[in-house]
Every structure is written in structure tokens, then in C-alpha cells.
Design a protein around this nucleic acid. Sequence first.
DNA 1: GTCTATAGTTGGATAGAC
DNA 2: GTCTATCCAACTATAGAC
Lengths: 199, 199
Amino acid sequence: MSKLNIQKAALSHFARSGYEGASLSQIADEVGIKKPSIYAHYKGKDDLFLHVVRDVFHTVQRRILEYFQARNGEPVEDILNGLFGWIRQEYEQDDAAKCLLRMVYFPPDKLYQEIADIANPFIDGMQRKLISYLRQSHQVGTFLCTDYEEAAVAYITLVDGAIIELIYGGPERYGKRVQAAWLIYWRGVTSQTGRDLTS
Amino acid sequence: MSKLNIQKAALSHFARSGYEGASLSQIADEVGIKKPSIYAHYKGKDDLFLHVVRDVFHTVQRRILEYFQARNGEPVEDILNGLFGWIRQEYEQDDAAKCLLRMVYFPPDKLYQEIADIANPFIDGMQRKLISYLRQSHQVGTFLCTDYEEAAVAYITLVDGAIIELIYGGPERYGKRVQAAWLIYWRGVTSQTGRDLTS
DNA sequence: GTCTATAGTTGGATAGAC
DNA sequence: GTCTATCCAACTATAGAC
């Protein structure tokens, strides 16, 4: 019972302050217990941290797949474009996404390898899922581009760049960035290839 | 003399470990002095940190402008696309870019406002410069898209998304991502607008 | 499982000799 | 300017009573 509360409080602190910035005292305070009680559930700070990180990656992965399943059958354009709005909601609602990003981009020195072993399969899996999704959509005629991997990689780049603005600039700037980037991306993906309009 | 060495060592540590993760002892060790000697040059950790951050932003800004000036006159496509290669070199060479990103995306709690006051003018300035550059290029016929702000914002999104992969995935994955994202971006920017190719 | 008490370490910061 | 010595606060972690 307390174990789950500890993990939730820890997530919030790790997401906001990072591994080094978070302290077990503050986490215990938020749960309403004393610091040594944490050691009845976790071996130490590292153990608690890695439990949180693993849970965060599993949660985010599950939620993304749920999004795609929930909107299955809709046009690819709506689903891919709609994901940006979904991301904003997720990011504002809980700390899992923020924590995940922080761990992926700036993991604590001493746990770099452990986190990489968690993050790499997550990222590769997401990219594979997206490519196979685009290929499947192309077969049913809802997606024009034929180079799925290129379209998928470019899309993920868009998502990453947008999230960066969500973290730093906030929801409003995020919205403007998404609008501009998506419009050009979709135009680039749906235009006929082989044309060379460069001056 | 020592002041500059301290700042260089501090930059390296802040870039790798962040504000909380870096310690004055380690910084002093790298310089070859004792910890209290730092206080002869800086008021404390915060003071040293903010000096490093300010220097990092000024340096990066200056170097970006130098890049655009050095390639002035070349086609927009080459300059914008070439910036990705330039970024990779910069990022590998020194820690300034990495430190800058870390501070923008995950600033330390207690110095959030101070860092925002440094980062916001930098980002806004870069965006304004890019927009005016695209407008100027359009007048000389080297750039097709007429919505400069849209093209600029989308381009910056691309850069951010690519840098994320540079931090995490390394140069090889960065290269693949840039290739895919740039191709689609440039196609989207140079295609005629108004066409609706969505299924 | 949770507590009090405390060990042991490290952090930032200061005083004062040289 | 740099050092030694030191202070104080905060941290992780453990021992042992209940």
C-alpha cells in the first residue's frame, strides 16, 4: 500500500528535480512517513529510482499504444496530427512523460547504462510500430508516401522537437510550433516525390 | 587566469552532471586547485553557474551567426541543410551546446527564472533572425515558401528534434534522422500550397 | 512496517594564515 | 590568490525498539 504511494511521490520529485536534485526526505514527507520507512520497501535511492523509471517507460508505452488502438480506422492524417494534442494532455496531466524525457535526454551519470537498457528498447519499439503502422495504412490506401521508414523517422523528429517546446515554451508555443511543423510535414509526405523545385 | 580555467572546468561538469549533480570539489580538482580557492573568483556555486550559463548562450549565439555569415550567398537549401552537419561538429567539439540544451530543457528549480531570462531572448532572437533571413532570401528568389514564420518555426522544430537524437542516439542515428526529416521538410516547403492530397 | 536515533559522508561556504 | 582548517547543513543509509 505504502509502496505505491512512495513510487508516486518519487515520480513527481524525480520528474521535477532529477535524480540528484530529489531527496528521500522530501519524498517521505509527501507520503506522510519518515525517511527510514522507505528502506522497508526499496533497497535505497537507486533501487527506488530504477523502479520508477521502469514503470514510467511501461506506462508511456502502454498509453501510446492505447491511443493508436482507440483511434483505429480513422485517417492516418487525423491520427498522427491528433497525437500532438494527446501528448499535450498527457504531459500536463501527469509527470510520467516529463520524467521519461528527462531520463532519456539527461540520465544521471552513475545509472547511465541501466537507463539506456530501458530506454533503447522503448524507442526502437515505438519506431518499429510506427513504420509497420504506416505500411499497413498504405496498403489500405490512406497513406501516400512509400518510404515508410523515412516518413516515420521524420515524424518522430517532429514529435521530439515539438515536445521540447512543450517542456520549455509551454502549451501555447507548443500549439503554434505543432501547427507549422505538421503542415509542412504533411505537405512533404503527400507531395509527389521526384520533383525538384529547388532554385 | 585561474578564473577562466574554473569556468571551463565548471562548464564540462555542469554539461555532464547538471547543476545539482556537479560539485565544486570535483571542479576544483580538475582545475588543480582546492575548493575554497573558487570563492576568490566567484561568490558561490550559483554565481559560478550563472556565469557559465551566460557565457554558453553568448558563445552559441555568436557561433551560429558566424555560420550564417560565413556561408552568405549560398543557396538557402544548402545553408539550412548544412547547419545540421555544423551542429554535429559543434556538439562533438565542446560542451557548450550540451550545457545550453540541458539548461533550456531542465533548468534547476531554484534558478529557473534567471535561466529563463537568459534563454528566452536567445531563442526569440534566433527565430527572428531566421524569419528575416528567409524573407530576404525569398526576395532574391532562392526560397519558395511565402509563409516565412511557418517555415522558420517548422525548421527550428526539426533542429530541436534532431539535436535530441544527437544527444541520445549519437552521431549515426542523428545523421539518419536529419536525412529523413530534412527531405520531407524541404519537399513540404517547396511544394505549391493549396493542393490537398490527403486521401 | 514504521518509528527514533545516529552513523558516516558529502555538500557549500567561511575564517584566517601566508 | 591560494592554502589549511573548520563549520554547518543535508544527504543516504543502518541499527534496533515497538
